[in-house]
Amino acid sequence: MQKLVFLFIFFSALCCSQQETQQITATLKDSTKLKAKHIFGIDTFNTLYYTSENNSFHKKTKDTTITYANFQLGEITTANAFNPLKINLFYRDFNTVVVLDNRLAEISKVDFNTIQPYKNVSFVSSGFDNTLWLFNQDFQYLELYDYKTQKVKLRTVPVQSIVLDLKSDYNYCYLLTENYLYVYNYFGSLIQKLKNTGYESLAFSKAHLILKKENNLYLLEKNKTEIKRITHPKMLINQFLVTNETVYIYDEKLLRYYQLKIE
């Protein structure tokens, strides 16, 4: 019996040791020259979504580049191309969202200043079907809003700290605040709440969530609770994205592609 106990303790310690020594690395595999004001997305086909200095929005493929511009609304605060058939552009200064199709033609324009009750929106991200995740600045909660029916499908419990970032897909919504990282499912239920130890922004793909703290990147694997540091070359990280196992880092002149490896 004592031998069995010893073996159990030995293998438990071995498993814990392997978990503690797990290495996550980002290795440079490619780069491309690019002049952009802000990069908002790269898909698995290397289609690039970005804005230029004149606040035009661009969709660039290998062969073509198409452009959308609405100078009356000023600067694009965020853009979400997770669903390439319903790309949303958020103009925070005008409290407005424009939804585009895959040819960058307008599908819908949502002016929250004219909607009753009025919504003071500070962050926007894509939901399922015709929905958007909105952070209501006045009430400090997330809303899942259907812009076709102009109905709120759900609201979350208010948060108690300043919001830093918001990302989502069809199934999950990640809200980063100064105090916590909140993870919600598409029903609006809080499924995870992790302490924020200095993370400033995030990027998200189907497999992983990447967080930035100063000039370091960290990984939260899907369905995991431990945030782990990624080993990567030292550099100034102005903008970063993740698509599947690739992390993209942009420094205003060069877009670098890094392969994520977990071992």
Rank of each mutant, 00 (worst) to 15 (best):
32 T>P: 02
35 K>T: 13
36 A>K: 05
36 A>Q: 03
36 A>V: 02
37 K>H: 15
37 K>E: 14
38 H>E: 14
38 H>W: 09
39 I>S: 07
42 I>K: 04
42 I>L: 06
42 I>W: 04
43 D>M: 00
44 T>N: 11
45 F>T: 06
45 F>V: 05
45 F>D: 14
46 N>H: 11
46 N>G: 03
46 N>S: 14
46 N>M: 00
46 N>L: 01
48 L>N: 07
50 Y>C: 10
50 Y>F: 15
51 T>G: 06
51 T>E: 07
51 T>K: 00
52 S>C: 02
52 S>K: 14
52 S>E: 10
54 N>Y: 08
55 N>E: 14
56 S>R: 07
56 S>G: 04
56 S>N: 13
56 S>T: 09
56 S>Q: 08
57 F>I: 07
57 F>G: 09
57 F>R: 06
57 F>T: 09
57 F>E: 01
58 H>M: 08
58 H>S: 12
60 K>W: 04
60 K>M: 08
62 K>Q: 04
62 K>V: 01
63 D>H: 03
63 D>E: 06
64 T>L: 02
64 T>V: 00
65 T>R: 08
65 T>G: 01
65 T>V: 08
66 I>K: 03
67 T>M: 07
67 T>R: 13
68 Y>L: 08
68 Y>R: 02
68 Y>T: 05
69 A>I: 10
71 F>L: 11
72 Q>M: 03
72 Q>P: 01
74 G>W: 04
76 I>N: 06
77 T>C: 12
78 T>Q: 14
79 A>W: 04
79 A>Q: 07
80 N>G: 08
80 N>T: 10
80 N>Y: 04
81 A>T: 10
82 F>C: 11
82 F>G: 15
86 K>Y: 11
86 K>D: 12
88 N>C: 15
88 N>P: 09
88 N>D: 13
89 L>P: 10
